[in-house]
């Protein structure tokens, strides 16, 4: 059993999620830069791509990043975020 935990634990620690947040307030290209920078500062967030066209940000983060931490980060840019989807990232 210990052996199994030892083998699975690193996989769990390395698990990633893809989170998509809708940020309706983004209205110009510079908004995407501000949102991207804010989300990158959240612990566990590894990669962010923000797009004005879809008014959304796609986040690659370690498993377990809290919705609220992401919302708070978005709030620092003056906007509100809503989670559109959250799923385990397949390798």
């Amino acid at each position: 059993m210990k052996k199994l935990i030892f083998l699975v634990l690193p996989l769990f620690l390395l698990a990633q999620e893809e989170i998509i947040i809708k940020i309706e307030g983004m209205h110009c290209p510079l908004c995407t830069t501000a949102v991207k920078k804010a989300l990158k500062n959240v612990e566990g967030v590894e990669k962010v791509k923000a797009l004005l066209e879809t008014k959304s940000a796609t986040i690659i983060a370690k498993e377990g990043v809290l919705d609220n931490d992401l919302f708070e980060a978005v709030k620092t840019t003056g906007y509100e975020g809503v989670i559109l989807s959250r799923q385990h990232k397949k390798d």
């Binding site: 110009c28 290209p29 510079l30 995407t32 830069t33 991207k36 066209e53």
Partner: peptide
């Protein structure tokens, strides 16, 4: 990033990131 709000300033992107 699109659309552009207005084009009175130079606009630049490094991949998807917009310069200020």
């Amino acid at each position: 990033q699109k659309p552009l709000n207005m084009f009175g300033y130079p606009y630049a992107e490094v991949e998807d990131e917009v310069l200020d």
